[in-house]
Design a protein around this nucleic acid. Structure first.
Length: 687
DNA sequence: ATTAATCCAGTTTTT
DNA sequence: CTGGATTAAT
């Protein structure tokens, strides 16, 4: 039974009566065990698994807890619990409610946003100052949606001075963006929560209790979604000192004002730290004490006995730092999967990884960046997306832009032509065009006579007769597009053939396999490989090209493996968007950002690049309240360590030719003696 | 108007 | 090294 393994504090929390319960669980106090215990308690009390909603910060965390529940009960029971991130759960429920939504990658929607932004004119307002760029405006609007319930205009005016002249245009861009998004059925991460918030008001949800993990990182949007659900019972677990998602709208006041919000609120505090040795904990506490306290912190060390003191490592050079740490890891007796290297920003990862590789040490990096951002992976997924959602114009454009002579404009026209021919369904437009006539409107700005030798040939398919392609295909009205060349026609031919092959397939694996072996995909990766093997002088290095192709093929293999785990294409594609970043590649030493390290623990931890400006991030630290968040980040990083902790920094980066001062946190931790440098740094962050 | 080629800046953190 | 912006070519 999960309850029997809890200490009295944890047990009391796990057996809390229904109502509004807040569990303050500092780092390493058995938060997960308590949640699992609570679920066990609920099940024992007769709550059905499907009446439990468990919201976590990552899907991996949800899966882990479900697995632990499965260990105590059964897999059958555990998997009936509704568990996942706010986003994943919202998506599942919206689908269950039969909502036609297509979740798109943020970068995709940014492109759409930019295209709408670019239609607007700003130059008549030149005297009024500089308007935000499309990218910045998108991010700002996204943050706004997460962070507050007030209207965008007042929020923006409060936060950014001098933007009033542009606000009307901004609002117009946003309006059109929202409309366009809706017309395509696209949603982004925020929309999932917003739609869910609306949906729960109308339908009865079965949940008797909602459990929320990492409650300190809940933002206003997520909070409002919970409010809208009005669950009969809440079980929120968090730690004020580990709130590190302010950039995403996380508001520590949500956890801070819990008792004010709910009159019947009960607060339980877990104080016994089982994870770290005394010196590690005391270091963490020394630093976090610099933040103003909301709750008193009274961590008790459970672990006794000899412990290694945390060590400060100082290097002259950045690379020397990475190299030495790689050395230390090679000589360490700790199993590599129990070792983590933690950094503030991803930029640190490449250098470390290279040095580890050099010494033959395998490492594991949270994937995504490298894998899902690769063009070859995107292309394969775009094709798959198009089969699942024939309405997805953006996917269509991305694929057809690979064809010679077809750019985004022509691709868009082709798509719209197919939509017309297929009565709203692109695939129908391919297979059963409803008419054989030219679907393209003649342009207002027609080509001037003379550009072509024979005006009668414009749109005449006869110019492609020499290709010797299938007669039926040549009759397809889409080929009447005036700006197509032979390469374009060939590409379309290959794509039609692929679409036909895919039509009969249902399993994601076989769909992906078919895509990977298609002529269309072959053409795309050939182009990518050639580009990657092109030297400065324009020549193509054949050996390099083969290597590139090899890497591409390997990624394809991985994609097949991933697809194997899903039985519908839609689920597969969605999982790639929603959870793609959570996949990690490789085995061995863990390379993590502080954010990614949240909730994990390791025997041996290296926190690197502890230089002023990088950690804390100086650009941010100058903003109000941000140095506190940076300090919480440091606290999170330190408390990942169980036995051994190394903190390191380098004085000089020879690539960028910059000198660094140590992070102020090293002074606060007592690892460096407070001197003028510290006073200077502190003054900087206190602005 | 559109596409293709070339140049240039930039890099926090995540669902 | 990428992605966006600018510029040259069709």
């Amino acid at each position: 039974m999960p309850l029997s393994r809890l200490n009295p504090e944890q047990l009391q929390a796990a057996k809390a009566p229904f109502g509004h319960n807040l569990i303050i669980a500092s780092a390493g106090t058995g938060k997960t065990s308590t949640i699992v215990g609570r679920i066990g308690y609920l099940l024992k009390e007769g709550v059905k698994p499907e009446e439990i909603l468990l919201l976590t910060f990552t899907n991996k965390a949800a899966a882990e807890m479900v697995e632990r529940v499965a260990g105590y009960f059964s897999k059958e029971v555990a998997t009936r619990i509704e568990a996942g991130t706010f986003h994943a759960v919202s998506y599942r429920w919206l689908k269950k409610m039969d909502r036609q939504i297509i979740l798109k990658q943020p970068s995709e929607l940014k492109t759409l946003f930019r295209s709408i932004y670019d239609k607007r004119q700003f130059h008549h307002l030149q005297a009024e100052g500089q308007p935000f760029s499309a990218n910045f405006l998108y991010d700002l609007y996204s943050l706004y949606q997460n962070a507050t319930m007030e209207d965008f205009e007042s929020w923006l005016n409060r936060r950014h001075e001098g933007q009033e002249p542009f606000i009307e245009i901004y609002l117009d861009i946003i309006r059109e963006f929202e409309e366009t998004k809706e017309s395509y059925g696209f949603v982004n991460f925020n929309d999932l929560l917003i739609l869910m918030r609306e949906a729960v008001k109308e339908s009865e949800l079965p949940f008797k209790e909602v459990l929320i993990d990492e409650y300190q990182d809940t933002n206003e949007l997520q909070g409002s979604m919970i409010d809208a659900m009005e669950p009969p019972s809440l079980f929120c677990v968090g730690d004020y000192d580990q709130s590190i998602y302010a950039f995403n709208g996380a508001n520590i006041n949500i956890i801070g004002s819990f008792t004010k919000k709910f009159a019947d609120a009960k607060v339980f505090t877990l104080t016994k730290n089982y994870r770290s040795t005394a010196p590690i904990l005391s270091l963490a506490n020394r630093v976090i004490e610099y933040n103003e306290r909301i709750y008193p912190k009274q961590l008790e060390v459970v672990r006794q006995g000899n412990a290694q003191m945390p060590k400060l490592l100082i290097f002259d050079n950045l690379l020397q730092q990475y190299e030495t740490i790689a050395h230390m890891i090679r000589r360490s007796t700790t199993p590599h999967k129990e070792i983590a290297i933690i950094f503030r920003n991803n930029a640190s990862a490449d250098g470390v990884e290279a040095m580890l590789r050099e010494q033959g040490i395998a490492c594991k990096r949270k994937g995504g960046r490298s894998f899902f951002d690769a063009k070859e992976v995107k292309a394969a997924l775009d094709i798959a997306t198009l089969i699942a959602n024939p309405k997805d114009m953006m996917a269509f454009i991305h694929i057809f832009e690979y064809a010679k002579g077809i750019g985004s404009a022509t691709a868009k026209e082709l798509f719209e032509g197919l939509i017309t021919l297929g009565d709203g369904n692109m695939l129908e437009g391919i297979f059963h065009p409803k008419s054989m006539t030219n679907p393209f409107k003649t342009r207002s700005t027609n080509y001037q006579l003379g550009l072509f030798d024979h005006p009668t040939q414009i749109g005449s398919v006869s110019r492609f007769a020499h290709l010797g392609l299938d007669e039926n295909f040549m009759a397809h009205p889409i080929l009447k597009h005036p700006s197509l060349n032979a390469d374009g026609v060939r590409f379309i031919y290959d794509f039609f053939k692929l679409a036909k092959d895919l039509k009969a397939k249902k399993q994601p694996v076989s769909i992906i396999r078919t895509i990977l072996s298609s002529a269309t995909y072959g053409f795309i990766i050939e182009q990518l490989a050639r580009k990657r093997a092109t030297l400065k002088n324009g020549e193509i290095d054949e050996a390099k090209k083969d290597e590139a192709l090899d890497r591409i093929k390997r990624k394809g293999g991985l994609l097949v493996q991933l697809a194997n785990a899903y039985n519908t294409l839609e689920k597969f594609i969605n999982a790639m968007v929603l959870g793609g970043k959570e996949l990690s590649e490789g085995e061995g030493v863990n390379l993590l950002t502080v954010h990614a390290s949240k909730g994990l623990e390791f025997s041996e931890v290296y926190i690197i690049d502890l230089m002023d400006g990088r950690f804390p991030n100086r650009k941010l630290a100058s903003q109000a309240g941000q140095i506190e968040e940076e300090r919480r980040l440091f606290y999170v990083a330190v408390t990942r360590a169980k036995d051994l902790l190394y903190l390191s920094y380098a004085k000089y980066d020879s690539f960028k030719d910059t000198n660094f001062m140590p992070s102020q946190f090293l002074y606060e931790a007592g690892l460096l003696k407070k001197d003028q440098t510290f006073e200077k740094l502190k003054a900087l962050s206190d602005h």
